[in-house]
Design a protein around this nucleic acid. Sequence first.
DNA 1: CGGGGACTTGAACGAGCTCAACTCTAGTGG
DNA 2: CCACTAGAGTTGAGCTCGTTCAAGTCCCCG
Lengths: 260, 260
Amino acid sequence: MNAMDEPTKKRRSGRQSCADQGEVACIDCNLFGFLQLFASLTPEMLTHFLTTHMPLAKGEVVYRAGQPFEGIYAVKSGGLKSIVMQEPYGEQVASFHLPGELMGVEDLQSATYSFTIIALEESKVCFMPLKQGGLQREPLPSSREQMVKILLEHLRQCQRQGLILGMRTAEERLGAFFLNLAERYARHGFPMHEFRVPMMQNDIANHLGLAMETVSRTLKHFRELEMLTIRGKRGRILNPGCMQSITQYCFLKKGTDEQE
Amino acid sequence: MNAMDEPTKKRRSGRQSCADQGEVACIDCNLFGFLQLFASLTPEMLTHFLTTHMPLAKGEVVYRAGQPFEGIYAVKSGGLKSIVMQEPYGEQVASFHLPGELMGVEDLQSATYSFTIIALEESKVCFMPLKQGGLQREPLPSSREQMVKILLEHLRQCQRQGLILGMRTAEERLGAFFLNLAERYARHGFPMHEFRVPMMQNDIANHLGLAMETVSRTLKHFRELEMLTIRGKRGRILNPGCMQSITQYCFLKKGTDEQE
DNA sequence: CGGGGACTTGAACGAGCTCAACTCTAGTGG
DNA sequence: CCACTAGAGTTGAGCTCGTTCAAGTCCCCG
């Protein structure tokens, strides 16, 4: 099973390899912090939500835009995408969801979901049911900050994405996209310079407003520069400095300078 | 002043024209809802924050990225932009801020501001000081939802912007940008099809990842199609249907289907 | 009324798109 | 375990859209 791994590379102790399915430990999952918001949850319920992982096949739909809002999902393993359908023109990929991240947060106060979410590969997700119209379960007064924190984190990630999409050249956009991807994996305990790429180039191209061929050619260029390699679902950053200078990607807040 | 009457009185002052300076009524300003979060505010303080508008000249800086976070701003009139500096390459325009909108929300829990904010023209802003490290003033328990609502609104606007930036052609991006602009003015009581354009084409181009010349040429094309005209700081949507079909801009949530 | 910044327009170039053929890979069934 | 296949990715050639550079016009503001 490890025959595919580089012979020189040893498994980092504790850390997870990008070669395995990429499952987050429940303690590293955002749903954990989210569930703690609700005073009405018994420890048993907490455990239940965290340990019940509904499995999804590749291409399976979690929910569709327009369906009534029923709750928040968290990614346990695999990867998913949020899309909007532009009627005759096909879909637009709004964002990707990695292990440990929440899905549906933007619809918390809405009657319906805004996006359609589709599994990019075999995945496991957890579900936290919430009655239509927001937080019926009373959040703990002491964890008000936690709720705000979750929304702020989403807002900042969204803004980061906006900066990436506002870049001019394909190289900048793609480089910044993969830096962001690696950063997001690292945040949930995966090694920083070796990460999974659950989405196919088609989805990346769609998301960044590029043609798939351009993605392929640019990645080839990155490989020639010995900056970044993508082989199958495995990505590796070879030269972070080069990466950042090419992409001009500024990390903004890493979440490290926040107050608790 | 008008802000002092019962807050419950939901009175939209007569619709405003885009020809005037474009000042929001205090009742329509997001800072009004924001201020209500704080139990410690006396009615006098509330009035103070709402009626003290600090004037800004064109090009003036509200705050710079990296400066310590001190509070939230609201736009009373005019327009502003959030930028990040890419050291040798100049600035990138992250977003624009219109009358009635809040600035600095993304840094609520941070030690420092993430963006630099600059006035696009003569503007007035209001300021709500908040001690570093988040909400020191205790939000009212009953208005917890209000805080969440504000953050959700920002998150959704940010996602909408992401969809716009992910579009492929200059026509789609520009069309969607102006639709969004008009929509945001309309949300604060301005007429829908006639709106101000406080930013210059240079900033629009920068924000959308286009060249200024492309913006100019595309707008000319829109004018020829009798779809949209921009004359100076005045914009007018002539053919909304055409607009939407060209841009494929989906409005997502207008905030009308939310529950209270 | 003059000056300068914002905008427009033109011409040439090039990054990225499209179309099409091809290769590689992973998943399937024998 | 291997052959087969469909889908994902690669590569090439030509073209288009958007960029760049440069000159010119408009308009706002002093």
